[in-house]
Design a protein around this nucleic acid. Sequence first.
RNA 1: UGGGGUGUCGCCAAGUGGUAAGGCACAAGACUUUGACUCUUGCAUGCGUAGGUUCAAAUCCUGCCACCCCAGCCA
Length: 546
Amino acid sequence: MNLNEIKPENFIENIVLEDLKNGKVNYVQTRQPPEPSGYLHIGHVRNIMLNYGIAKKFNGVCNLRFDDTNPTKEKQEFVDAIQEDVHWLGFDFKNVYYATDYFQQNYEIAIKLIKEGKAYVCDLSPEELSQTRGTLTQPGTNSPYRNRTVEENLTLFEKMKNGEFPAGKCCLRAKIDMSSPNINMRDPVIYRIQYNTHQRIGNTWNIYPSYDFSHPLDDALEGVTHSICGLEFEDHRPLYNWVVENSGIANHPQQIEYSNLMIKGVIIGKRHIKRFVAEGKISGFDDPRVYTLRGLRRRGVLPQSLLEFSKAASVSKTTTVCEMDFFEHFVREDLNKISKRVMAVLTPIKLIIENYEKDEEDIILEDYPQNENTTTRIYKFGKELYIDSDDFRKTPEPKFHRLLIGNKVRLKGAYVIEVTHFDEDENGNVTCIYANYDPNTKSGTANANNVKVKSTIHWLNVKHSQPIEARLFENLTLESEIQNGDYVFNPNSLIIKHGYIESGLNLSFDERYQFLRNGYYCLDKDTTNDLPVFNRTVTLKDSKKK
RNA sequence: UGGGGUGUCGCCAAGUGGUAAGGCACAAGACUUUGACUCUUGCAUGCGUAGGUUCAAAUCCUGCCACCCCAGCCA
């Protein structure tokens, strides 16, 4: 999907931006505000599209703004990675800003608030503060420091800024209402002391504004008209408005919340991914089994598929948990159009065509059958072939219509064959299959369809095949809901197959491949040995049944 | 038990007083050099629930139920 095709109207309808619907507003400015504390994942795509698309639609701009107000969690590594990933998706933001850009202005507004008696320095320890905040059902109690004089607050805040207090000694709080039923309004902390070195501004500041203070201010300062965020911030909206209203800034952005997008069972949380990396169960944030953008990219997913998926998932305020099939549908749709069809056998077993007398024979295969102008290539048919052992059954299950004694099957691009007999070892494992072919059934010839078959299987000429390694990723998903308050995941989801692929192919990292019936693959960029290594993106639609 | 949200097919989701769009999944059939793709057909007498208003209700009103979020000097 081209970015120009993003149609945010639907989104706008959904999130009930009344003014926009009514045509009262014709300019919208948004921002994409990631905290650089982790990698972007599939859930971020829709947020990016939404912010970018709405601004574009309504003559405005969307800036990328890093919410970098907490140096204990953030790293330059993430700042860089987020920008890379955003570009990979195809977005080019007007400007790249940082919350730290606004620290001086944030500070001046804090001073203004103090002077107006709307903020005070509180010496309560974090524990005491927590205790006096009250509970969900009981109001909080006023801090004993709530009524300090403006002069005292100014002095204390200045000392905080100058690094004269240890971290945690005191903080700046907005003076709102300790008895509010909304806990966020019970004198929230808007500045805290923080001595960690910041990845961008080093040690220039000893005090850091909290999200609830800097975010609305930065939105307002930047000219944002609509501040779109997750549902978890609904309770923060009154505070957002309070901050903007008391800031003296003319621009008053409107915060709009909507549901985050999830996929059933998929691990997205940084917490879990970090844990699996630490436990050595996955290789990192780009492991193809996790749904970070980097993981998905390495797995072979195209950015336009992510955009299509996100668009189709729509936007609402209901809890959105899509099924895996819904996501994979969009991945397959794109991959099907552009993938190069290649013959591969992942669990090889020999097939001898007993009545085949010739040495070799040219078979014409289409590289991209979905493309009218597809190129073709020649492959060699012969007497001694590899097929996938999974395509044969001694005793077939119901509805199995690939190879079994007495059943006719087409070898892709070649002939219809019928199994005559097979060899097996002392354990009953099939070691070699023997078949006869029908010379009148060659694909593409006039009478190719005289014999109807229910299935076509892939094959390789033993003399014209090269070894490969195929990594089949099962999705890293929730194995069971919740146990002892924690999630239980299934990280043992990597299956490695040593098989064969056609020899003579010019393999490319930019290409996607479809191994017939096995799904869509791409070369793994981390390949270090000489053997081509393929990662499977998704399976073909029906191949997972069987 | 306080506050804020959400409830339309297995999943996502339109619908905003005029008699339930669409996509995914699923099922059946056609086609076939992939059991793919493509095509055709089917799939909510029902909109959390109980009442009420109305000629007419998923849409308006009232009660109830279920689920999610909030008590970081995180975002």
